[in-house]
Design a protein around this nucleic acid. Structure first.
Lengths: 138, 138
DNA sequence: CTAAACGCTCACATCGATGTCAGGGGCAAG
DNA sequence: CTTGCCCCTGACATCGATGTGAGCGTTTAG
């Protein structure tokens, strides 16, 4: 298939696919006139690339895993294994960051909810309502 | 405290702190000569900001939460609550992406390990070793 | 007073994946 | 041959947080 179809099938723009190739993440056969040709297996390949990109891996990092995605070589495999475990650690710590942010956000959400409830109570005039004052420096 | 100390205490560069202020994430008192003055509470505030930034929130997004971090107003609170739940969803989905990438990576790691084991076996000459062939298109 | 260390503002540079435009071919249908 | 759609390369633009440097004032230690 040509680049347009691969783009449709993967959700990547043709521009991105060419970029992946330029970065060494993807290899394409060419027609005599220079147009790129891909096989079905490239769909999955691109999906993997995009998964990694979406996780914030740089194309440079992914490039170092590529040798290990297609036809592993001893050299590639050994080098890749270091990168992989390192990157795995990075992913885990990033996940932790996100989780921490989500918890902080949850906290804010609750404070916010409490404040709104208190304000509603105050507007009602009935003094009974949320436990504490909503004055926080946050 | 002045900006340098806040920087040391938060791990943010003075440059970043000024940027946060410019983006409306942080407010500072000024000495008559124009130097920024902060109180202890700003340390925590900056920490929160950095937590959110590290999670990939834009300063613009964080800015919309700020009214809700200090002295909540009805307006701010109402608007913020929308942003907050939206952003919470984004965080969750991002976490999922990262987790997916980590799983994909784990898969690669195992394939890689298997390949290396097979290669070692082949070098040993004893045909018994890893179960399948290591030839994958990835 | 002087020098060092710090602070201020302004402005430009950086990185990385992607968008977009320009100028030029390839290929199929009429 | 022409029209229309796809493709090619190359170059420049984008966004956002931060680095960096210039040029100039402030505060503090000697």
């Amino acid at each position: 298939m040509r680049i347009g179809e691969l783009a449709v099938r993967t959700g990547a723009s043709p521009r991105s696919l060419r970029y992946y190739e330029q970065q060494g993440l993807l290899v394409s056969a060419r027609t005599p006139s220079g147009q790129r040709c891909y096989g079905d297996e490239h769909v999955q390949r691109v999906a993997l690339i995009r998964t990694f990109l979406a996780a914030g891996m740089s194309s440079r990092t992914i490039a170092r895993l590529v040798p290990c995605m297609k036809r592993p070589t001893m050299d590639g495999a050994r080098r890749a294994s270091a990168v992989m475990s390192q990157e795995r650690a990075r992913l885990s710590s990033e996940i932790d960051s996100l989780a921490a942010a989500r918890e902080a956000l949850d906290h804010l959400i609750e404070v916010n909810r409490t404040f709104m409830a208190d304000a509603a109570d105050a507007a009602d005039g009935s003094g009974a309502g949320g436990a504490g004052g909503a004055g926080g420096t946050g």
